[in-house]
Write a protein that binds this DNA or RNA. Structure first.
Length: 135
DNA sequence: ATTCTCACA
DNA sequence: TGTGAGTA
């Protein structure tokens, strides 16, 4: 029972960009808007933990429903907004938020690839949890 | 090569 | 938001 590494892996903005499908511009912008915080390396280069990436993913989905930064910020302040509500305790059954709603029909659009990636990662998280209480 | 900040089409 | 300039 020791899965708390002292050094949680961090990612460059470039990796975060590929994993979230967000542009570096957007990532920096959301940070400037106070929607997300980031770590800084020796220089000034941003560094993101998986929690932050998770939050970014939440922001991305939230921006589709809400259409203003303000609305997203408030939704984020409420508990269970991805950061600690996504893979902490999931009483409900596995159902990916935005995806299952419209369905994935093509992998061509870059944004879809990012969404698929996010969904897979989310699925992996569910699997890891299940593997501990497998009947 | 990659990211950073700032500013402008 | 994207993109280019000039750095670190």
């Amino acid at each position: 029972m020791a899965d708390q590494d002292p050094n949680q892996p961090t990612y460059s903005i470039g990796e975060v960009r590929e994993r979230t499908g967000l542009s570096s511009r957007q990532i920096r912008y959301y940070e400037a808007m106070g929607l997300i915080e980031s770590l800084r390396t020796n220089g000034k280069h941003r560094r993101f933990t998986e929690e932050m990436i998770d939050r970014l993913l939440t922001i991305k989905e939230l921006l589709k429903e809400k259409s203003s930064i303000e609305a997203v910020r408030q939704a984020l302040q409420q508990p269970g907004a991805g950061q600690s509500g996504l893979q902490k305790k999931t009483p409900a059954l596995p159902r990916y938020p935005q995806m299952s709603r419209q369905g994935l029909t093509s992998l061509y659009p870059v944004s879809n690839r990012a969404d698929l990636l996010a969904m897979i990662q989310w699925l992996e998280g569910q699997k890891k949890m299940k593997t501990n209480q497998d009947p």
